[in-house]
């Protein structure tokens, strides 16, 4: 894939946000806040960082992305469609009977997802297993990216893996934490305090980098830097705005697990098409 300019990638990111809104409205259920907040992470991974080939999903040299917070799968489906894995029209089958785009990711129905997830906390462990397998096969030049939610870090399974990966110095595992500060029951710091998150991961033996997760250039730079660090595995704390791009959704935890209705979707799409009023034109 030839490299795209940031201005082009920003347009793709905005298109993906619009697709997420349309998919969720059409599905009538699903999660809005997380997927909208993670768009830059997925654009960076699929359009800049990862070695992958939509035409050859079992390419032995590919990098692997495990989406541990499976409820955010709309952002992955939408990004994959834009990256050429399937036609964008298929996005409207999200959560429908017979669709490959299940409500939570299912590898057997869509093998390019690499794993099946939804129940939280198990992605990092799978990355650890993959990391061990790749090391046995002298394949440590391949990277394994794991996207986790911050609420997900309540799960003990995460910390079991967080101990194991530094033990074997699986430095080609890159953990990306979507730090959007919300989970279903409210703000993460009220539900179950996570801070000092950076210190926690550092004390578990990780090299921690913090980044503005909605700044595409910063996300790309950080993921690029992560590849160069080999003395420790890297955990990226990506600060994102849940519901990013849609004013009435941003930073409101009530949008964690609900889709927009028709009127809300119209409003959201209008805002996204005009990039929050920065653009006026045919769509208005």
């Amino acid at each position: 894939m030839k490299p795209l300019s940031y201005s082009r990638l920003e347009v793709i990111a905005d298109d993906i946000r619009q697709d997420i809104i349309k998919m969720l409205e059409h599905a009538g259920s699903g999660h809005s806040a997380g997927p909208l907040g993670e768009v830059e992470i997925y654009v960076a991974l699929y359009f800049v960082i990862m070695k992958h080939d939509p035409e050859k999903i079992d390419w032995p040299e590919r990098d692997i992305l495990i989406q541990s917070n499976g409820h955010c799968v709309p952002v992955r489906y939408a990004t994959m469609a834009h990256a050429g894995y399937f036609d964008r029209s298929e996005l409207m089958t999200l959560r429908k009977f017979g669709s490959r785009l299940q409500g939570h990711p299912e590898r057997l129905r869509l093998p390019a997802l690499e794993s099946t997830s939804g129940p939280l906390g198990s992605g990092l462990s799978q990355a650890a297993g993959l990391g061990l397998a790749l090391r046995l096969d002298n394949q440590t030049h391949r990277y394994i990216y794991v996207v986790m939610g911050d609420g997900e870090l309540d799960e003990g399974n995460v910390w079991e893996a967080a101990m194991l990966i530094p033990k074997y110095n699986l430095h080609n595992v890159v953990a990306i934490i979507d730090r959007n500060n919300i989970q279903i029951d409210g703000l993460t710091e009220n539900v179950m305090p996570l801070e000092d998150l950076k210190l926690k991961w550092q004390s578990f033996g990780w090299h921690v980098i913090e980044v503005d997760g909605n700044n595409l250039e910063s996300v790309v730079d950080t993921l690029t830097m992560a590849k160069a660090i080999t003395d420790k595995p890297v955990a990226i704390i990506a600060y994102t705005i849940p519901g990013k791009g849609v004013d009435f959704m941003e930073n409101d935890y009530h949008w964690h697990g609900v889709p927009p209705n028709h009127e809300q979707a119209k409003l959201a799409l209008k805002e996204l098409r005009s990039l929050k009023g920065k653009i006026t034109g045919e769509h208005n």
């Binding site: 794993s115 906390g121 462990s125 650890a128 297993g129 993959l130 061990l132 397998a133 096969d137 079991e160």
Partner: peptide, 17 residues
């Protein structure tokens, strides 16, 4: 860490082991 045990196993299997 039994939760880790089986999920690491899943990852190893994904890696062809």
């Amino acid at each position: 860490a039994e939760q880790n045990l089986v999920t690491v196993g899943s990852g190893l299997a994904a890696g062809g082991k």
